[in-house]
Design a protein around this nucleic acid. Structure first.
Lengths: 183, 183
DNA sequence: CTGATCAGTGAGTGACCAATCACTCTATTG
DNA sequence: CAATAGAGTGATTGGTCACTCACTGATCAG
């Protein structure tokens, strides 16, 4: 069994830094230097670990969805026996908690905005596919309920990105009511 | 009554070009030169009409929401007497038709991605506020129904940005079912 | 005609950034 | 002790872009 080289060990560290930095600035608004600084390596070395900015972003996005899938899986297992809607509800709660630091949420929003880059769109669809299939399979809920689960997740993204949860006007309260949002 | 100067007449033309171009490339992915070329003026002249890129983007976003509000208003008026849910449904249909060229939809998605720029976030909240208030006031539907209207609108954005409507897998069909999407 | 105002542009400038390359340093191996 | 391979970086490069400035040409009042 070959042990991991030091470079291979750094890849997940850089990926995690990329998740944070791309979540902050988006694809075009984040530089390789930003990610390198967050990972405490030189910008040049980032290009030895990843072939380019695009692949680095894709790696971050894949990491993001992997965390989501893991979290939802655990939540579904813990809610076994609550019935389909109960399981979906538990998944929603776990998701709300997971994205409380906003990184995983913002990265998805930024990814949507550059989904016309083929590799990024593909990664986004793959991530969405895994989440939808997971929600359907683990909850056993109806297609309509799963679709609603996704729709209200997107509503949650809107609320967070626009900062609606800091507004107390009537319309804002209406939009955010009952949505579990970051503390 | 003073007639509009030729510069004032150009502003809406440039704004319309900005909507199209920013919708294509997003805030960071679109240059002033792109917008200028689409409006058939020189890049330098854009800066005589708008103080900077940020304000130009905000103007485009405001124009986007104004079109949405107008469209929804007309749809609501035409559906008078269909009951709250019928009016909301008519508004949803009108919205689906309006965004069939994707510009108004993509611009909103890109705006979400740069909503941490204060002026853009503010414009986004203002636009969202006007849409929510309009939907509530004209339909008279419950808060829950209006919230669902917004949530499924966001789901529609997700479907279009990720190109899910071109995928025929089970999960994709589930997500997009019943959502009126661009032709 | 004169001069002033406005529309509109070409040619920059300074800053920034993705990607590359040549290089150093360290550790291991024979 | 060489020799080699991998880790890691500094310096650079070629290109892009927001924004500026000095300028031209047109229009029009007096």
């Amino acid at each position: 069994m070959s042990s991991l080289s030091s470079a291979e060990l750094r890849i997940p560290v850089v990926t995690a830094a990329a998740v944070r930095e791309f979540a902050r600035g988006g694809y075009h608004g984040t530089t390789i230097a930003d990610v390198a600084a967050a990972a405490r390596i030189s910008p040049a070395y980032v290009f030895k670990l990843f072939p380019g900015k695009e692949r680095l972003f894709v790696a971050a996005l894949e990491d993001c969805f992997q965390q989501i899938v893991e979290t939802l899986t655990i939540a579904a297992e813990e809610a076994t026996g609550s019935g389909p809607d109960g399981i979906l509800d538990a998944m929603g709660g776990a998701y709300a908690q997971l994205i409380s630091d906003r990184s995983l949420l913002m990265l998805q929003v930024h990814a949507q905005s550059v989904a016309d880059v083929p590799e990024i769109g593909q990664a986004l669809r793959a991530g969405l596919a895994s989440v939808v299939r997971l929600a359907k399979a683990r909850s056993g809920a109806s297609d309509e309920a799963v679709q609603r689960f996704i729709a209200y997740g997107q509503l949650c993204h809107l609320i967070v990105t626009t900062g609606v949860d800091d507004v107390t006007d009537d319309w804002a309260v209406l939009v955010a009511r009952g949505i579990r949002h970051p503390a």
